[in-house]
Nucleic acid binder design. Sequence first.
DNA 1: GCCCTGACGTGAA
DNA 2: ATTCACGCCAGGG
Length: 127
Amino acid sequence: MTANASSLRAVTPSRPEVAAIKAVIHSIPRGRVTNYGDVANRAGLPRRGRLVGRILRDAPATEHLPWHRVIRAGGRLAFATGSEAYHAQVRRLREEGVAVVRGRIDLLQFGWQQDADAVLWGPPAEH
DNA sequence: GCCCTGACGTGAA
DNA sequence: ATTCACGCCAGGG
């Protein structure tokens, strides 16, 4: 439409970057996790991990973003161990088979890479 | 406009 | 493993 966006901009946070980031988060496969920085990178916004965190914090539950699949770099959960959010995240992750040990996740096993499984198990075609 | 804070990341000490 | 300093950027006071 031809309406001036300036009037909407103030109350509509749906800028292209936000949409891109949410799209990436939605695309994280079940049973896999990735970090804030990676989400930002995949959305074409390097060094914008903070924005990812802020978006998740403000995102209404109605969007059903798989926020629990986004963790910190190094495989550690972002929330303080023992906090409500922490337990909620652990619960959701375990529901889809992701092992959380002392607030940490083995990225080689559950990290969102191309084929972590294939790398570990190796191709089925050798002697 | 300045200052502090944050669901962050990286590198150095 | 921990702590600090920075870089980054949006909000809130």
